[in-house]
Every structure is written in C-alpha cells, then in structure tokens.
Computed example of a mutant assay.
Amino acid sequence: MLQLPKSPPRMKTLVSVDESYQLCRHITEKYAKTFYLGTLLMSAAKRRAIWAIYAWCRRTDELVDGPASALTTPETLDLWEQHLESIFAGHPLENFDVALLDTLQRYPIDIQPFRDMIAGQRMDLYRSRYETFEELYLYCYRVAGTVGLMSTAVMGLDTTTNTAPWHQHKQPYIPTEEAIALGIAMQLNNILRDVGEDARRGRIYIPLEDLARFNYTEQDFFKGVVDDRWRSLMRFQIDRAHQFYTKAEQGITYLAPDARWPVWTASMLYGQILGVIERNNYDVFSQRAYVPQWKKLRALPLAWMRSQVL
C-alpha cells in the first residue's frame, strides 16, 4: 500500500533525470504499445515529457486497477494526492517523479487535471455502474479527458497564423474542448475493448440507460450474450465514440506543426480498434480487439498526410 511520510522527507538519492525518463519510457512501451508508437513521432523533448505524464497516469490507475488494488482506500488516494503536490512543489519522492518534475519545469502544465484524474480513481472505489451517459462522461473526463489537457501543454500551439500585423494582439486558439474530446474518445474505446475484462470484475461501464434502450439486461451482460440486441447496442456506442473522435480531430490543426502527426496517428490507431470490434461481430466478451503492428505502421503515411493538409 502507498505510504507517505507525515513529516517532510529527508532527501534520499534518486536516479538522474535521464534515468528517470528511461523508466517512464519502459512503462509506456510495456503498457501502451499503440500510444507509445505515436510518441516516437514526436521530438525527443516532447516524447520524453509525454512518457513522464503517462507513467504518472499509469501508476495512478494501478492504485485502483493494479495487482494491489484490493488494498487501496480513499486514504491511499489522499496520500497519492499529497505525493502529487510534493512533485509540483519541486520535491520528488520516487524515481519516476524526477522525470515528471523536469517536465513540469519545461512545460506550463497545471496541477488541476492531475487532481481530477485522482478524483476519477476515487469513483472506481465505490462505483461499478453508471446510470446515464452524463455520469459516464464525468468519469471519462476525469480518467482520460484530463490526459488531453496535460498533453496539450506539451504539444504546444501553432502561432504562425497570428503573424499578420492585425493579428499581433490576438491570442492563439487553445483547443481545450477538442483535447478533452480525444481523451474521452479513447476512454470510450477502452471501455468497449475491455467489456469482457470489466465484466469479470463485476463492472459495467456502458450506461445502464443504453442497455435499457436496447432491451439488454445486466444478466445478459454478465452471461456474455452476443445477439442482435447487443450488436445494436455496440453500434450505438461505437457511433458515440466516433463523434468524439470527429470533434477532437477538428482541434489538431491548432497544435504546433511538429505535434500534429503524432496526434493524428494516436487518434487513427485507437479508432482502428473500433473497426476490429466490428469485424469480430461485436464479441468483446471472449475476444480482445487489437490492431496488428503491420496495420498500425500502414496508417502512418495517411496520418502524416492529414497532418499536412487538414
């Protein structure tokens, strides 16, 4: 269980900045292969920063979904938030923190999205159902939309559109809502991909109002029933995810030019998972949808072209 000292900790020897970034790279490559591929298209500085952010997010998620999650309590998350505040105050406590602190010093990242993500993990401690999509949206924002906000600060904005004299005092558009939409789209992706795994944990992330809309029951869900009702329900969920992807992609053009290709790539690769679910006849109970590496690589040229013209 996570434990933090009650008094300010004495300095202990931690790894170097470069070593810490390597730790973050390893955890990103191991647990987020599609996401990791997108980071390789970024500049060295930006990719390292994204690795540091991902590593923190992964460690946060592990508190409620990892091997020791049964030991996690609200107090555990309180301590984790104190740990976060220590990093933002310039006092890393663990080896992974060294890279995140360096990232915070390089990019204008606000602490609130990190706090919001911890609030999302709190929801997983006491909720295993969501009645409406509005309730699920809040959860998705907290555990994934926040990542969009963290990442946008690293990606940077395109300032070249405001170089004309009459635009000199015009602030560049910040695609905040679009960044949140991309995170939510990816989380909806994860929910649909992980239906079987979540069912075995007794969790239903698809809104109960949607199950009722298609006359599909919780008993059907836990039995893994795949019939016309389920397929119609899944098509409805996939259409919703696509709507968020569409909204997110409208904001990519406002990002710094060197960030557009990796963001387009991440969006397209995650979207491919939805296509695999469809080709699997919507059976996400006994099959886990994944995109082969060769198909991921095949998407890169199209993502690059979109980054240049859209």
Rank of each mutant, 00 (worst) to 15 (best):
M1D: 09
L2D: 06
L2A: 04
L4R: 07
L4C: 05
P5V: 06
S7V: 07
M11E: 12
T13M: 12
D18L: 00
D18Y: 01
S20F: 02
Y21D: 02
L23Y: 05
C24L: 10
I27S: 05
K30I: 08
T34D: 11
L37I: 12
L37T: 00
G38W: 01
M42E: 01
A45P: 04
K46F: 04
R47E: 02
I50Q: 00
W51N: 06
A52L: 05
A52Y: 13
A55P: 05
C57K: 15
R58H: 13
T60D: 00
D61Y: 14
E62K: 05
E62Q: 05
L63D: 00
D65C: 03
A68W: 12
S69P: 09
T73L: 04
P74K: 04
P74H: 15
T76G: 08
L77R: 02
D78R: 14
W80D: 01
F88Y: 15
A89G: 10
L93E: 07
E94D: 15
D97E: 08
V98H: 00
L100V: 04
L101M: 09
D102L: 02
Q105P: 05
Y107Q: 08
I109C: 03
D110V: 11
D110F: 11
D110G: 10
D110N: 07
Q112R: 02
R115C: 04
I118T: 09
I118R: 01
I118Q: 02
Q121C: 01
Y126Q: 13
S128H: 11
Y130I: 07
E131G: 14
E131W: 07
T132S: 15
E134T: 04
E135P: 14
E135I: 08
L136F: 03
R142C: 09
V143I: 02
V147R: 07
A153G: 11
G156Q: 12
L157I: 14
T159P: 02
T160A: 10
T161D: 15
N162I: 14
H167R: 07
Q168D: 04
H169V: 09
I174A: 03
T176E: 15
T176Q: 09
T176A: 14
E178P: 12
L182S: 03
A185K: 02
N190R: 02
V195A: 01
G196W: 10
E197F: 05
R201D: 14
R203A: 13
E209Y: 11
A212N: 09
N215T: 06
N215C: 15
E218D: 14
D220Q: 06
F221Q: 04
K223R: 10
G224Y: 11
G224L: 12
W230D: 03
R231A: 01
M234W: 06
Q237T: 09
Q237E: 09
R240H: 14
A241V: 09
Y245D: 08
T246V: 12
T246Q: 11
A248T: 13
E249S: 08
Q250G: 11
P257A: 15
V263C: 08
W264C: 11
W264K: 09
T265A: 11
A266I: 05
S267D: 12
M268H: 13
Y270W: 06
G271T: 00
Q272W: 05
L274M: 11
G275I: 12
N281V: 01
Y282N: 00
Q287L: 15
R288F: 13
R288V: 07
P292Y: 03
P292W: 02
Q293I: 06
K296C: 02
A299E: 13
L300Q: 03
A303R: 00
W304M: 02
W304R: 05
M305L: 12
R306C: 10
V309R: 10
